[in-house]
Design a protein around this nucleic acid. Structure first.
Lengths: 195, 195
DNA sequence: CTTGATGGTGAACGATTGTTCAGTTATGGG
DNA sequence: CCCATAACTGAACAATCGTTCACCATCAAG
């Protein structure tokens, strides 16, 4: 059989360009990226990348990177399973944290947690909560709510007396809205960064 | 003075195209996006977008979106401060979770937490830990380590007897490596998603 | 109301784009 | 070793790219 090319090396090179330039290279720029000398070679490679789902071609023929290409983190299994062998590292899924966490970008906000009232829910001071503004909360979900003029982070609950906002900390008591209750949004995720 | 255009509306339209097509539109495609009829109008708008930091122009003149444009979440302040008024909503920072959390994409992995041994550190079963593989741990940091053949998530500590791996749960005891200790990576962040 | 600057139209330009074709090179299976 | 075939070279192509020009429209300040 004829000579075969290793896609993985090419994909790595393309990823690097994508990260640095934040765009896809043109075919002539790919000459440098892939160390080719003919744009026809690029054309063939691009066709393969489309076949393998790294690039997407729209109706007009324009190319765009898929999340498989532009993803920034390799998604593995359980901590117990550890890391894959270098040989298998090319086959793991690559995801984007944005795509993973955010469903409605236009309604999504990040807020910094300041109290410890949700500590038993694993939400610590300094954490960022990803909030979907305007969403309708279900019971048991965590909401950002304005109660009697003050914004807080609490579990959304209901009982015979109506809506109740529960903290996740035994040292705090639940809140019962007196005058007003305004649900700002529903917490869809939590992000913590260590420095 | 002459008539003024509202950049914010244009930026929204551009963001929508960017999310759907995963690439920047060409000038003629921008005619539709911005409802223009001359590519000269597009040219002027692009120049403004570059000036305001939404687009980046490299040495060769190629355009690329900045994180200010391609960011997916609006970064606000403390939970206490609540949400901005709709009028001020255009002025908040827009960030990408990938850019925020990930420094070295090529060495970054996501692992699913399965035990509750780090629960007091706010890391629950089902959470994803963002691990930077191969990084050297400092004392007090959380690491993914292989101790005597088994992979675990623990605090990295040292005492007079050498390296010690501490859980964040009173029901568990610290681990002292007997035969082998292999630090897989350092935990740089935690991501939790609610369904 | 006039004026000046900004936003926009319409059309033309050379440059760059991706495609295509004929031909060459390299390599793994028989 | 040889051969079939995928990978690649080099060059030409029309199509599309972003830039630029002259000119018109609009609107706020004086």
């Amino acid at each position: 059989m004829p000579r075969t090319l290793s896609l993985n090396a090419k994909i790595q090179q393309l990823r690097q360009f994508l990260r640095q330039e934040r765009r896809l290279p043109s075919y002539r720029e790919m000459l440098d990226v892939f160390d080719y000398r003919s744009t026809n070679a690029v054309s063939g490679l691009v066709r393969k990348l489309v076949e393998h789902g790294y690039l997407l071609r729209d109706d007009a023929g324009h190319l765009a990177p898929t999340s498989k290409l532009s993803g920034t983190v390799k998604l593995l299994g359980l901590v117990q399973a550890g890391f894959p062998a270098p040989a298998e590292e090319d086959e793991v899924d690559v995801v984007s944290l944005d795509d993973y966490l955010i469903r409605r970008p236009e309604a999504s906000f990040l807020l910094t947690v300041n109290g410890d009232s949700m500590i038993d829910a694993g939400i610590q001071p300094g954490d960022l909560v990803l909030v979907e503004k305007g969403a309708t909360p279900r019971i048991g979900q965590i909401v950002v709510a304005q109660v009697d003029g003050e914004w807080t982070l609490k579990y959304y609950a209901k009982d015979s007396a109506g809506v109740r906002l529960d903290p996740a900390n035994r040292n705090y008591r639940f809140i019962r809205p007196r005058q007003s209750l305004h649900i700002g949004g529903v917490v869809r995720g939590v992000v913590r960064k260590y420095d």
